[in-house]
Each structure stands twice: as C-alpha cells, then as structure tokens.
Computed example of a mutant assay.
Amino acid sequence: MNAPDLTTPSHPPAPTLPITVREGLDFGLDGDIARHWFGGDAFKTRFFDAMSVLFPEGERFFIACVRDYKDQLHSPEQAQTMLDFAKQEAQHTKVHNAFNKRLAAQGIKVDKILANQRRHLFEHVRKHLSKRHTLALTAAAEHLTALMSHAFMQNRHHFDDADPRVRAMYVWHAVEEVEHKGVAFDVMQQVAHVGYLHRVWALVLVSLQFPLLVFQILNHMLKVDGYTRAQRWGIWLKGLWWLYKPGGLMGPLLWPYLAWYRPGFHPWDEQAPAEFQTWLGAMQRSGNPVTASNALQPHT
C-alpha cells in the first residue's frame, strides 16, 4: 500500500472559484476573423493557434487520466468535482475543434498533427506508463495551463490587439482552467498518492516537451503562411523577444511555475485574482463571453 505524500497538507486550501460548466457559448468564431488575428502579428497569432491545435487531444488525455481513479474516490463531492472537470474539458475540446477547422481551411495540417498527438498520448504514453505516471503528467500540465491563465489575465494589456472573439475564447478557457486547477492535483495526492519526486519529474518532462511541440507547430504554420526561411528567422527573433523579454508574456510565469517544486505546494495556494471575478460578474450580467472578455480590456 502506498503511503500518503506527507509533503502535501492534509487539508489543502479551498478554491475561490466553483467549477461551473458553461455550455453553448457563442464566441462568433464563424465570423470574418483575420488570418493573423493578433494585431496582424504572425508569431503572436500562430503561438496561440498552435496551442489551440493541441488542446482537443490533450483535454481528452487529461480526462482519461483523471477518470482512471473514478472508482477509488473518497466521497460523492470528489466524484462530482471530477465530473465537472471532465465536462469543462469536454467543452474546451468542442470549442477548439471548431476553431481548428478555420486553421485547417488555411492549409494547416490539423488532422495530421492531431493523429500524431493521439497516437503518442494514447498508444504510447497511456500504454507504456503507469496510471500514476500519466496522472502526474496531467497534474503537471494543468499547473502550466493554470499559471498561464493567471498571468495572462493579470497582464491583459498584452492582448489589446487581439481579435475580441478569439481573445474571448482564450479568456473563457483561462477562467475554467483556474476553476478546476486543483482537481487533477488532488486526485494525484489524495487518491493515487504520488510522491514529491514523482510530481517533480512530471513537471520537468512536461516543461520540456510542451513548448517544443508548440514551436514545431508554429514553425509549420509560418511555412504554410508563405514566409521564406529568412523571413521566419526575423519573425522568430521578434516573437521570442516578445515572449521572454523582461516584462514580456512569459516573465510573470516564473515564480508561480517554481512554486510546484516546493514541498507542500498546492495549486490553490495562489487564489484567483480580481480579474477572474470581473469576468464572472460581466458574464453573469451579459451571458456573452465576448462582452465578459472585453470587460477586462481597459482600451476596449
């Protein structure tokens, strides 16, 4: 019998956001959206487009890895939380599949990328690694998406030039990632009893693989856009500076990222900031995710 991970508090912090399943949201993604919808910038656009391509199969993988433990949960509350997590992830899959059809129509090899990803995740990772390993990878990936969601919402000025409809999709996705950011972690700790070194290994692996995969897809997209090798070099240099310069998109992620490696860490050590409540309030009043997203943009 596996011993509990004593580096994790027995009573983890309570979440500040309930998990809410939002179905049938209309982002207006069937409208006339520019190919480079992020202020005409190819790198910024394709960086997020590349993540969108990866989300559907990734979300399916997360659901499967958490559901591996559905018969070992300790309470009806845990079962409901797992169900709500799965429903949210399923909605993300649905919306990003719809958006990815736009990318496929542009010549992006979406089907081939998804087939390769599906084969890797379901025919290799889930086949050859234990359930505890795949759950740890899921919790680590959820940590990355949650910390990106926190940072992107709190530094929303970076997205002033984005198309409001696509921005709304990512803001909604960010809110829900934060709402359920503790689910996979709690199952990993409380049910699967994954230890400290195991979860550290998982985040190191995900931290290496995920950006490399995003960058590979991004480069494919730039080729499809018709940029020459020399042009792509310029786009990459400018884009990487945007990502990693002081005050850039990724800078605020460093300390929240490193928190994972602290013994006793829990995702809800960092509570949801005011921006999430702003979005929730605007969404409740309007019922429109684009309006709710615009409420976060001071220049909109």
Score class of each variant (00 low, 15 high):
200 V>L: 13
121 L>R: 01
82 M>A: 13
195 G>N: 14
258 L>V: 08
193 H>M: 13
45 T>R: 03
268 W>S: 03
251 G>F: 08
254 L>V: 14
237 L>G: 08
36 H>L: 10
46 R>E: 05
27 F>K: 03
176 E>P: 03
269 D>H: 11
199 R>Q: 11
288 N>Y: 08
38 F>E: 07
193 H>Y: 13
253 L>V: 14
98 A>M: 08
173 H>G: 02
207 S>V: 12
176 E>Y: 05
116 N>L: 14
85 F>Q: 06
60 R>I: 09
126 R>Q: 13
19 I>P: 00
161 D>V: 09
177 E>R: 02
33 I>G: 03
262 R>V: 14
41 D>V: 06
63 I>Q: 00
143 H>E: 06
241 W>Q: 12
199 R>L: 04
153 M>W: 09
205 L>V: 12
283 M>H: 04
134 T>S: 05
209 Q>C: 11
300 T>V: 11
107 G>I: 03
36 H>E: 15
35 R>K: 09
95 V>H: 05
241 W>K: 12
73 L>A: 03
36 H>V: 10
262 R>F: 13
23 E>F: 06
131 K>W: 05
53 V>F: 03
59 E>Q: 06
247 G>I: 13
25 L>W: 04
258 L>S: 03
158 H>D: 04
53 V>T: 06
126 R>F: 02
177 E>Q: 01
4 P>Q: 07
99 F>H: 10
17 L>R: 01
